[in-house]
Design a protein around this nucleic acid. Structure first.
Lengths: 170, 170
DNA sequence: CTTGGAAAGTCAACGAAGCTGACATAAAAT
DNA sequence: ATTTTATGTCAGCTTCGTTGACTTTCCAAG
């Protein structure tokens, strides 16, 4: 259990960052930071009567316009019943458009409408503002480290999704 | 909105890490990493019929044995009714002990029992294992950056709580 | 000593967002 | 023609958050 207790490698190099105490602080930092991370969008969403689930759907639909329901399902890792409830309200409210596939007519391709795009920009604007502020404070090298640790922490399947999104970069 | 678009400072230094695209990837990394972060404890908790809320209570009670309910409430940022439901089951199941305060008998001081401590070690063991693995892969400098960005991302009040916990170090 | 207010607990009701299971439909694939 | 896939929907359940109302206990100030 207390694997990092000795915290010294064979080469004598200090491994203080692998101490149980250090790791525990990392865990707590992750917990508190995530609450900050979601705080701003949550406030905005609440004004519109939406929740975090709507944000996630909006985010990924915006990220990959035209993605199918199944696609979104596997990125989000929820059941179709759960996603459907969210998606239905977004479609009813005119934020998301669901177009029947041309090649495969069973598929529905999801797009943000003008209104949907507006909300997306409002949400991601707030979230990015906080992230940008944190990045600025911490500096480029810290950001690189931040990203490295986060990637290493993901489940392999989620990392796959993450990297697929990365490939979408222009 | 697209504040980082130009991504060049007055000094000509590249600020690529502040690009909207970079920030967005940070947001997504945070989202996917947090899912990994909670995955292992969630599996264990489910076996015992508990949820994430129980984990949080157990974690912070362990971290500061003897803390009051009000204290825990303000760290967790939930309502007492919500916490009470969780706490009641933990007390009923013999994982947590609630002792009436000596100085102020209105206060309840919370402690993990032997059984509670066992579950705490099982949960944090799993969570720390993942965190440790990620730390090892990323290396000490990345870890330092990781922590810097996370701290900068917290709400001031949460950062206060985080730092208070830090002060508890031996 | 009495009274006001803080700390804690309880009951009820509700909402968001997960889940499972069962079933329907259309279209693609075999 | 049959099976599989993609999607949607209904019903019901669970966790965990919320608000509001109320009680009990107890400290502390008047």
């Amino acid at each position: 259990m207390a694997e990092g207790a000795i915290a010294t490698s064979q080469s004598g190099e200090s491994l203080l960052f692998l101490t149980d105490e250090q790791i525990r602080k990392g865990v707590e930092a992750m917990y508190f930071a995530y609450r900050g991370f979601t705080a701003d969008p949550d406030r905005i969403l609440h004004q519109y009567g939406y929740g975090r689930a709507h944000h996630r759907a909006i985010h990924f639909i915006n990220r990959s316009q035209g993605m199918t329901v199944n696609n979104l399902l596997s990125v989000l890792g929820v059941t179709k019943q759960s996603l459907n409830r969210v998606l239905r309200t977004l479609i009813e409210d005119g934020l998301v458009e669901s177009r029947i596939g041309k090649r495969d007519k069973r598929e529905r391709h999801l797009f943000l409408t003008e209104t949907g795009g507006k909300l997306e920009r409002e949400l991601s604007g707030a979230q990015r503002a906080r992230m940008r502020a944190a990045y600025r404070v911490a500096g480029p090298e810290a950001v690189a480290g931040f990203r490295q640790v986060l990637e290493a922490m993901m489940d392999p399947e989620l990392r796959r999704h993450f990297n697929t999104l990365k490939d979408n970069e222009a």
